[in-house]
């Protein structure tokens, strides 16, 4: 191992020597995940790292590091502090917006350098398969009949699941009891065990329980159906309930503030290559994630619009920091 590494080190140093060549990482890249191990963001970060390794796309490894403290605040503030660093990346989820808005930590996505968006995660309204509700309409009618008695399970507080629940409540004039859990997998299991009545889990978190006949998807929170074979029979919320409630979660990457332009270009290129591999595409299909690679100005525009959206939604739901 020692000799091998030393040799590899020499080779890399020699290879990196020619001046004027395009930027390349010269040391391991720290890949920050502002969430715990095993969640959706963590999975994608480790997948990207693994694909880069498998197809030899990066001369240096991407080392995944979890900094989940304070709903991701720890990770964001850490990367914010690494001004000009070209060897750090961070993968984000909706907590890019929700955490600073709710807790008031000194952070905004503009503190980071946008690199690319990889995918958008969908949300689906689920109920337990033993319940009599075959459609969203039936379920919502039942909730309306007995306000504040149906329990909606979700991940965390003042995060995407609760925002979505509040959107649904306000659009339809309902009231759920929102029960926060630590992670998406736990939420779906509590639905299977009948401890909550419904959830707004991401597809992948409930997929296996659905196939086993334990939970039932009622509607997708998107403007169009999911165009993947087994998911395409699920109606959109608009089709099922006549109101337009849609929400998607960002799976995108950022760098530290002031990351050099050459480095940003290199990472965009790397991530595009990762995105195009069959492994990554297969992951998107199986998890019913929306393929959505963008970079540059388009990415910035999307993030800006979504920041605005989150501010409005959270203000409406009374979730902004007081």
């Amino acid at each position: 191992m020692g000799l091998h590494s030393a040799l590899a080190l020499v080779l890399v140093l020699v290879a990196a020597a020619p001046a004027g060549a395009a930027w390349e990482p010269t040391k391991p890249i720290e890949f920050v995940v502002p969430a715990g191990t095993g969640g959706g963001a963590d999975q994608m970060a480790r997948l990207i790292s693994g694909i880069a390794e498998k197809h030899k796309l990066s001369p240096r490894p991407l080392i995944v590091v979890n900094k989940s403290g304070g709903a991701g605040a720890e990770g964001f503030l850490d990367v914010k502090g690494k001004k000009g660093d070209a060897h750090t990346l961070i993968i984000t989820l909706s907590n890019l917006f929700t955490t600073p808005l709710h807790t008031g930590i000194p952070f905004n996505w503009r503190d980071l350098t946008p690199i690319s968006r990889m995918a958008l995660d969908q949300f689906i309204l689920w109920v337990n398969a033993e319940t009599p509700y075959k459609t969203a309409k039936e379920y919502i009618a039942a909730v309306k009949a007995k306000p504040t008695s149906f329990k909606m399970g979700g991940t965390g507080s003042a995060q995407e699941d609760q925002i979505l629940t509040i959107q649904l409540e306000q659009a339809l004039g309902l009231k759920f009891i929102y029960v926060p859990f630590k992670g998406g997998g736990e939420v779906c299991v509590n639905l299977v065990g009948n401890h909550v009545d419904s959830t707004v889990n991401n597809p992948i978190e409930c997929a296996s329980h659905w196939k086993a006949g334990r939970v039932r998807p009622l509607a997708v929170f998107d403007t169009a159906r999911i165009p993947v074979a087994e998911w395409k029979d699920i109606p959109t919320v608009k089709e099922a309930l006549g109101v337009d409630v849609h929400y998607q979660m960002l799976r995108g990457l950022f760098g530290p503030p002031g990351m050099p332009k050459d480095a940003v270009d290199w990472y965009v290129d790397l991530l595009k290559k990762v995105y195009d591999t069959p492994d990554f595409q297969k992951y998107l299909t199986e998890g019913a994630l929306k393929p959505a690679f963008v970079s540059g100005a388009d990415y910035v525009k999307w993030v800006e619009e979504n920041e605005q959206l989150h501010m409005e939604l959270m203000a409406k739901g009374g979730l902004l920091k007081k």
Binding site: Q43, R46, G50, I204, A207, S208, H209, A212, Y283, E286
Partner: peptide
């Protein structure tokens, strides 16, 4: 999931 298996009751 990354290996292409669907974890859950059907495994």
């Amino acid at each position: 999931i990354i290996w292409g298996l669907q974890p859950g009751p059907l495994l």
